[in-house]
Amino acid sequence: MRLPLLGILLLTAAFLLTVPAAWPSEKAPHTETEGLDLMLPHGGCRLTILPDGSGSIHYGAAPWHVRVTAHTFDFGPLLQHFQANVMFAKSLPERREEAASAVFPGSSEVKFVSNAPRVRALLQQGWASRLPPSSPAAFFEDESAHERVRRACNLG
């Protein structure tokens, strides 16, 4: 049975309109977050700060993480500070490893931000206020996970 050309075109258009929605966006490697994600360097050590002042420290896409106690960070002022310090391509340092990046709440777009020393200080603050490792059964939060994050992020 032969479909008329118009039918084939309509089927093709319907297919093309539905499939790209399933493909990940190249602009947005992160999922939308309710918190503020700060990375130093970009793609490296990541601090997620949540509205209650708690957070977590990760390295890249590795699954290990360290949880940070609530009220460690002042979310509102930090969010305002980094939103006001978004950098544009022309103002990025020559060495990208010296640039910090952020993903703001409700977004998945990564932006470069100035003030990498502040991001480093916040990582240290989070490390100082970390929660103890979970039980050995919680593989991604156990003592070895803390040690991996510490070494990768050059903390403590």
Results as ranks from 00 to 15, higher is better:
32 E>M: 06
106 G>L: 10
85 N>H: 09
104 F>M: 11
75 F>W: 05
24 P>T: 07
5 L>F: 12
136 P>R: 04
147 E>M: 10
141 E>W: 00
27 K>S: 12
84 A>M: 10
153 C>A: 08
34 E>V: 09
49 I>Y: 00
73 F>C: 03
30 H>D: 13
139 F>E: 13
60 G>D: 06
119 V>F: 00
51 P>M: 04
77 P>I: 14
79 L>T: 02
60 G>N: 07
108 S>H: 11
79 L>H: 02
52 D>S: 00
15 F>S: 14
37 D>H: 06
57 I>S: 00
61 A>R: 07
79 L>E: 02
146 H>R: 03
32 E>D: 13
45 C>S: 05
20 P>L: 12
132 P>Y: 01
29 P>S: 11
5 L>T: 12
98 E>Q: 13
141 E>C: 04
39 M>W: 03
45 C>N: 01
6 L>I: 15
123 L>F: 09
80 Q>E: 13
3 L>I: 07
88 F>Q: 14
4 P>D: 14
17 L>A: 15
11 L>Y: 06
18 T>A: 15
96 R>E: 15
23 W>K: 13
65 H>Q: 13
96 R>Q: 14
56 S>E: 08
106 G>K: 09
64 W>V: 07
103 V>Y: 03
85 N>S: 07
110 V>Q: 05
96 R>F: 11
110 V>S: 06
108 S>L: 08
5 L>E: 15
130 R>H: 12
27 K>T: 04
152 A>C: 04
109 E>P: 02
49 I>S: 02
143 E>K: 10
138 A>D: 11
94 E>P: 05
138 A>R: 05
17 L>C: 15
81 H>Y: 09
100 A>V: 05
115 N>S: 14
93 P>N: 06
116 A>S: 10
31 T>S: 13
47 L>P: 01
88 F>R: 10
84 A>G: 10
110 V>T: 11
68 V>A: 01
58 H>R: 13
29 P>E: 07
120 R>E: 12
114 S>I: 02
83 Q>K: 09
25 S>K: 09
149 V>Q: 02
124 Q>P: 01
126 G>D: 03
8 I>Q: 08
46 R>G: 00
93 P>T: 04
15 F>R: 11
142 D>S: 06
142 D>M: 05
73 F>W: 04
3 L>D: 08
156 G>N: 10
50 L>V: 02
69 T>Q: 08
95 R>M: 13
96 R>G: 07
77 P>R: 08
59 Y>I: 08
133 P>S: 12
66 V>A: 08
51 P>A: 02
27 K>E: 09
74 D>I: 05
92 L>G: 01
83 Q>T: 07
22 A>G: 15
31 T>K: 14
93 P>L: 10
12 T>W: 09
102 A>P: 03
70 A>S: 15
51 P>R: 01
103 V>E: 01
131 L>E: 04
44 G>V: 07
126 G>P: 01
10 L>Y: 11
126 G>R: 07
21 A>P: 04
146 H>L: 04
86 V>M: 01
127 W>T: 03
95 R>N: 15
82 F>L: 04
15 F>W: 14
